[in-house]
């Protein structure tokens, strides 16, 4: 059976079928969670922002005109709210719980391969966190979401050429960080 399209669900929602919104949430929750989570690096903060994303979508859906695809619009909301949260976080300079857990976890009991994976994961996480905002957005959408440049250009409202340059610099910086930390 064919899956009902985003646009049909949005039309249903606009016509008063509130449950159509539930289908949209269920369809995109995982993708949106990971975009937000990778931008914020913390589950609890990501959870909070993801809920806000869908609340915002609920209230703005009536004004969605379909100029871009729904998921382009959705990603844009998710990225903007995540960056707002990041900026707020920077000004608060809170101590990351994840960092604390990471520092206190004992690596003694883990097999060597698992330890290496854990270490690489930590380095990657740190490297991504250190990327400039724009490069971070491009990197996450390209590497983790595997979106084509043309789609990312629509989401971020920029040129494909600029995106390619951003992606190159992001990957290079991650490589530099990992190399320097592994020495």
């Amino acid at each position: 059976m064919n899956q009902i399209s985003d646009l049909d669900l949005i039309t249903e929602f606009k016509e008063g079928n509130d449950k159509a919104f539930n289908h949209l949430v269920l369809r995109y929750q995982e993708k949106i969670y990971w975009v937000v989570r990778r931008l914020l690096s913390d589950h609890d903060e990501a959870d909070d922002v993801v809920q806000d994303v869908f609340v915002k979508v609920y209230h703005s859906l009536h004004s969605f005109k379909g100029d871009s695809s729904f998921y382009t619009w959705l990603y844009r909301i998710a990225i903007n709210l995540s960056l707002n949260e990041l900026r707020r976080k920077k000004t608060r300079k809170t101590f990351s719980f994840d960092d604390a857990v990471m520092q206190h976890e004992s690596h003694d009991a883990l097999p060597l391969e698992q330890m290496e994976r854990k270490e690489q994961t930590r380095l990657i996480k740190e490297a991504i966190e250190k990327l400039p905002e724009r490069q971070k957005k491009v990197f996450l959408l390209r590497y983790y979401e595997e979106l084509p440049y043309e789609e990312i250009a629509k989401i971020l409202k920029t040129s494909v050429g600029g995106l390619k340059a951003n992606y190159f610099h992001a990957v290079k910086k991650i490589g530099e960080y990992v190399r320097n930390e592994m020495r």
């Binding site: 589950h43 290496e116 380095l123 990657i124 996480k125 590497y143 990957v171 490589g175 990992v178 190399r179």
Partner: peptide
């Protein structure tokens, strides 16, 4: 090119962080 190769290798080895059970 070496740095980019190193980044992709580290990314390949790294694992996705965990999500609490039943989160979704």
């Amino acid at each position: 090119l070496v740095l980019i190769g190193g980044a992709f290798e580290a990314l390949r080895v790294s694992v996705d962080e965990e999500v609490p059970t039943h989160y979704f």
